[in-house]
């Protein structure tokens, strides 16, 4: 009994600091977002007293469905392409020599930790109307001189893939590394071609990694804000841009909160679904390292 209690005490002792911090500064503010959705805005950019459904009503504004649709669409395409590129990479990294693997891993991680803004800016320079890529493509006659590479949905998509791809590569690589490649041999031994074995044995084998990659790319994509802000234009605005616009330009905090609440719900649905799925599949692997 006494040992049990001491164990209990020491558990609380090491758990409380981080738990309290996150309860107060993560959970409470998140709940607050939902609450403030029902508060009125004051003309001075503050939050008024009392309760109102005004924000909820403005969410019915016909502008929003288009933006939400674009946000989801861009995120789905970006996630799909990231996973399509990351899967052969994970396979490659799991199969090469350890030295080569370390090199590739380092090369993947390096841009991952490089300043986010700098990487976006690098693309802005590259795609700029007077930038190198534009000159090259015009010179080759691939695009008309008046075509803009920047400020459209394709530029947003490209840069989203550029910044999110490492988040897909790392979990897929982690799963591929654990994959028992003798299973591929077994499949070939039983008459399967390489591609068949890849589809029917390898992909199901790294399913946990694929799910994690989906989560790690799709969810941040839904909340993209800086990328459409810098390389996108008015026709490629996403939900994140609207939240920032309501916060900084219109100074309507309840309105921003309403949009955030919407985004939170949109994000929680796939997250809870996939976490549950992953737990069910393999309780142990659900704790795949998120860091590097």
């Amino acid at each position: 009994m006494k040992a049990g209690r001491r164990r209990n005490l020491s558990e609380w002792l090491v758990t409380l600091p981080s738990l309290l911090w996150l309860l107060l500064l993560f959970l409470v503010p998140t709940v607050l977002v939902f609450a403030i959705t029902f508060k009125p805005a004051t003309p001075y950019g503050g939050i008024g007293d009392g309760w109102t459904l005004a924000t909820l009503r403005t969410l019915g504004n016909p502008n929003y469905p288009a933006i939400i649709w674009r946000t989801v669409w861009l995120s789905v395409v970006a996630t799909t392409l990231c996973i399509l590129l990351a899967t052969p990479m994970g396979y490659y990294m799991a199969r090469v020599s350890p030295a080569r693997r370390r090199l590739v891993l380092l090369l993947v991680i390096l841009p991952f930790w490089t300043s986010f803004l700098v990487r976006i800016f690098a693309w802005k320079v590259l795609l700029h109307p007077e930038g190198m890529l534009k000159h090259a493509l015009t010179f080759l006659g691939l695009i008309a001189p008046e075509t803009s590479l920047l400020y459209n949905a394709y530029a947003v998509l490209l840069v989203m893939i550029y910044t999110e791809l490492p988040f897909a590569i790392l979990p897929i690589y982690a799963a591929s590394e654990k994959f028992d490649f003798r299973l591929i041999e077994a499949a070939k031994d039983l008459g399967a071609t390489s591609f068949f074995a890849f589809r029917k044995i390898f992909l199901p084998g790294i399913r946990v990694g694929l799910l994690t990659a989906f989560l790690m790319v799709f969810i941040p994509s839904l909340g993209s804000y800086v990328i459409p802000d810098i390389v996108g234009g008015p026709t490629s605005e996403m939900l994140g841009n609207k939240i920032a616009q309501r916060t900084f330009v219109d100074r309507n905090l309840p309105h921003a909160a309403g949009l955030s609440a919407l985004l939170t719900v949109a994000v929680l649905i796939p997250m809870v679904a996939i976490t549950a799925l992953r737990r069910k599949e393999s309780p142990k692997d659900a704790l795949i390292e998120e860091g590097v």
């Binding site: 959970l27 503050g46 969810i219 916060t247 909160a257 955030s260």
Partner: peptide, 28 residues
């Protein structure tokens, strides 16, 4: 289990959500 969820979730949530929620928290 609770502790893990609350540590894990900020890793995947879009930053903009944490940004705005903390802003509202500090403003309140």
């Amino acid at each position: 289990k609770l502790h893990y969820s609350i540590i894990y979730t900020p890793l995947v949530l879009p930053e903009i959500l944490m940004g705005l929620s903390l802003l509202l928290f500090f403003v309140q």
